[in-house]
């Protein structure tokens, strides 16, 4: 897109939106939010960046192919369920650990790993669609 204002603002806007998407993802455990909606926000960030600066720039910026990101997300979600084997509880049971880093207790869980997997699947799959549509629509 030719607008100078849009091009100047887009990178900041995109990075803010990605940051916000991660906030929504992490907040989703007990409050509205989560992997799916967070992923959608991240995809809109990538889409805005793509409209402003071109699809090639986005592809370079995310480094991995979108489908590979989606695959990693699916893999993470499957692994999150399989961790239960070690604890002798049924598939997909939520397991928590509370490591303390620098004196701060950080609750980590398989539920969170699963949700991060959902986030990556949404980011990967939808940005794959969005980027290829932008690629064809632009020319």
């Amino acid at each position: 897109m030719k607008s100078v204002i849009f091009r100047a603002v887009a990178p900041f806007l995109a990075s803010l939106m990605v940051l916000f998407s991660i906030f929504v993802l992490l907040r989703g455990h007990n409050e509205p939010g989560g992997g799916f909606i967070g992923g959608l926000i991240a995809v809109s960030a990538l889409a805005i960046y793509g409209i402003a600066c071109g699809v090639e720039t986005v592809r370079r910026a995310i480094y991995f192919h979108p489908m590979a990101i989606a695959g990693a997300g699916l893999f993470a979600s499957a692994v999150a369920g399989l961790i239960s084997i070690a604890a002798r509880v049924p598939f997909m049971t939520g397991l928590w650990i509370y490591p303390s880093v620098l004196g701060v207790e950080i609750p980590l869980s398989t539920v969170m790993l699963f949700d991060c997997g959902v986030y990556l699947v949404v980011v990967g799959a939808i940005s794959s669609v969005a980027l290829s549509l932008e690629e064809r629509g632009g020319e």
Partner: peptide
């Protein structure tokens, strides 16, 4: 559950190894 989880994990691995 293993047949399903196994196929999903391998499918995801293959998508990653594109």
């Amino acid at each position: 559950i293993l047949p399903v989880a196994w196929c999903l994990a391998i499918g995801a691995l293959l998508v990653m190894l594109r």
